[in-house]
Computed example of a mutant assay.
Amino acid sequence: MSLRRLPGWEARLEAMLRAAEGRPFSWGECDCCLLAADAVQALTGHDPAADWRGLYRSRKEASVRLVAVYGTADLAILATEMLGAEIPLGQARRGDIAAVPVRGQRAFGGVMLGVIAAGGRVACLTPSSQAGGGLKLFALDVARHAWRVG
């Protein structure tokens, strides 16, 4: 699928990130995959999570749902399938999707998805067990993967 950024994407992305700031992490409602999908939708109008949004309530259910729909729960593989080939981190720009490693996690390919926000940092939603939980910003150079959105 060829995605194209729609006029006004910058304002929609910023509004989406502001709304995420005050929300606690919640599987199936407000998690790293849905933040990335919300960003893609804000930029392009396409919701890549339409087939599984709201259909899981735990980490295990998320993994099972992703495997059922896509055949894998590895988030880097899923992002490549949905967004196309990876791009070098140095080419990533605001609104693109990135994958940040999660220390000690093997599930989901050992990464969480996020969106590159203003200032070149990666905004990710983390569970309360990780760095205090909620929306966190990470330096782009810690990311392992990046994908162009539109």
Results as ranks from 00 to 15, higher is better:
residue 146 A to K: 10
residue 97 I to C: 10
residue 66 L to W: 04
residue 1 M to F: 11
residue 37 A to I: 02
residue 89 L to P: 08
residue 127 P to S: 05
residue 13 L to V: 14
residue 7 P to A: 13
residue 69 V to C: 09
residue 77 I to H: 09
residue 54 G to V: 07
residue 101 P to K: 05
residue 17 L to S: 07
residue 61 E to D: 14
residue 71 G to K: 02
residue 83 L to E: 07
residue 48 P to N: 00
residue 46 H to F: 15
residue 137 L to M: 12
residue 140 L to S: 06
residue 137 L to T: 01
residue 15 A to W: 05
residue 116 I to N: 01
residue 58 S to H: 13
residue 88 P to V: 07
residue 81 E to V: 11
residue 6 L to W: 00
residue 90 G to I: 06
residue 47 D to P: 09
residue 105 Q to G: 00
residue 69 V to Q: 12
residue 90 G to R: 12
residue 58 S to G: 12
residue 32 C to T: 06
residue 61 E to Y: 04
residue 81 E to C: 13
residue 51 D to S: 15
residue 97 I to V: 15
residue 2 S to P: 11
residue 4 R to T: 15
residue 93 R to A: 12
residue 40 V to P: 12
residue 132 G to A: 07
residue 38 D to Y: 07
residue 142 V to K: 13
residue 119 G to L: 03
residue 6 L to G: 00
residue 125 L to G: 00
residue 123 A to L: 03
residue 81 E to K: 15
residue 88 P to T: 08
residue 40 V to D: 08
residue 45 G to T: 05
residue 86 E to W: 05
residue 97 I to S: 11
residue 58 S to D: 12
residue 71 G to I: 02
residue 117 A to F: 00
residue 100 V to N: 03
residue 87 I to Q: 09
residue 47 D to C: 08
residue 20 A to W: 12
residue 41 Q to D: 10
residue 95 G to L: 01
residue 59 R to Y: 00
residue 9 W to C: 06
residue 76 A to R: 15
residue 23 R to C: 02
residue 128 S to P: 11
residue 133 G to I: 05
residue 16 M to Y: 06
